Structures are given as C-alpha cells and as structure tokens.
Computed example of a mutant assay.
Amino acid sequence: MHNNRINIFDFRRDVLQKLLDNNTYDNRIAPNYEEDRATNVTLKLSIISIDSINEISMDFSLNLFLYQTWVDPRLNFTKYSNFSSLELDQKMIENVWVPDTYFPNEKQATFHTVTVNNKLLHIYQNGTVFYSIRLSMTLTCTMKLHNFPLDDQECTIFLESCKY
C-alpha cells in the first residue's frame, strides 16, 4: 500500500513537471495571448468578517477569501492522466499564471501567512484553474453623513484587472 502512494505521488509530480515545463509553459504570459483574446476570469468573494467602519477616515476593514477561476488550455492534462485535479503546493503556485486582479479602492491590504501562505491552487483535467487567497483589507468608502448617526451607508468593493 505504501509503495502505491509513492507511485501516485511520483506520477502527479511528473504530470506537473510536464505541464509547467519552462520550454512549453510561461507563467508570464496569459492564456490565449497568442490568439489575442482576453482570459475570462470568474471572481467570487466570501466575506469572513467586517471588522470596522470608520466615518472619520471614510473606510471599512474586512477579512475575505477571493476565489478566481479561469481556463488555461496549456494546463489541460487529459492526455497525461485521468486524475480529476492536481493541487499545487505553495512553492508550485508561483509557476502558474494568475490574473492581475486588484482592488482600486484599497488603502491597505495584507495576505494571510500563518502558518503558511493562505493560498490554494487546483488545476482540473480540462485546464480549468481554481485559485483562492485570503486577504485582510481596508477599503475607501465615500460616506454621506447628512443624517449622522441615523444615515445608511453603502460601501462598495471594486475589483479590476491591472492591465486589461
């Protein structure tokens, strides 16, 4: 049984090495770049907590998970394996292209790193990539304080692509 686990581990490692070979995969280049079309990225936020709302500095702080999903055809591994997905460890994540998503109304942000970087990346057999990261952020919120303290505020979280 123990030998079987080693073989599966070795096989997964070999599949990842084939996919992320520097001669065929460049993590600096977006999927579909050669076809001159944008990569569609699906974003989802899961807010863990809203920690503060500050009417003096007009901002709010929160803790969240940012989930991103896209298809990178270069990472399709149907010809190499019948595994449904491959999970990359922290050191391997930096070898994969990830979207340049940012928050334009961010004042301050922190990545969570206790006990390791709070990041997760799965590659599915068809080349779909799922990437998750945990963040704490302070974002601007232009508040209308005409009826303070009885007013209602609407604070928005903006997300954009840095380059596209």
Rank of each mutant, 00 (worst) to 15 (best):
N4E: 15
R5L: 14
R5K: 15
I6H: 09
I6T: 13
N7S: 11
F11N: 15
V15H: 09
V15W: 10
K18G: 01
L19F: 08
L20Y: 12
N23W: 04
D26G: 13
D26R: 15
N27V: 12
R28S: 15
N32A: 07
D36C: 10
A38C: 05
V41P: 01
T42E: 09
T42Q: 14
T42A: 13
L43R: 11
L43M: 09
L43C: 10
K44H: 06
S46T: 14
S46L: 13
I47Y: 06
I48L: 13
I48K: 14
I53Y: 05
E55Q: 07
S57W: 04
M58N: 11
M58V: 00
M58E: 09
D59V: 01
S61G: 15
S61W: 03
L62M: 13
L62V: 03
N63K: 14
L64K: 09
F65H: 11
L66Y: 04
Q68D: 04
T69Y: 10
V71S: 04
D72W: 02
D72P: 01
P73I: 09
N76S: 07
T78I: 07
T78R: 12
K79V: 06
K79A: 10
N82C: 02
E87A: 05
Q90P: 00
M92N: 07
M92H: 03
E94S: 14
V96Y: 03
V96I: 06
V98Q: 08
D100T: 05
D100P: 01
F103A: 08
N105K: 11
E106V: 05
K107R: 14
K107G: 05
T110A: 13
V114T: 09
T115F: 07
V116I: 08
N117H: 03
L121V: 04
H122R: 15
H122G: 00
I123W: 04
Q125E: 02
N126P: 00
T128Y: 02
T128V: 07
T128L: 09
V129G: 02
Y131W: 12
Y131G: 05
Y131K: 10
S132T: 09
S132M: 14
S132C: 11
L135V: 01
M137D: 01
L139S: 02
C141M: 02
M143Y: 00
K144N: 10
L145F: 01
L145D: 04
H146D: 14
N147D: 13
P149E: 05
D152M: 09
D152H: 08
D152W: 08
T156M: 12
I157K: 08
I157M: 08
I157D: 02
C162H: 08
C162V: 01
C162Y: 09
K163Y: 12
Y164I: 06
Y164H: 08
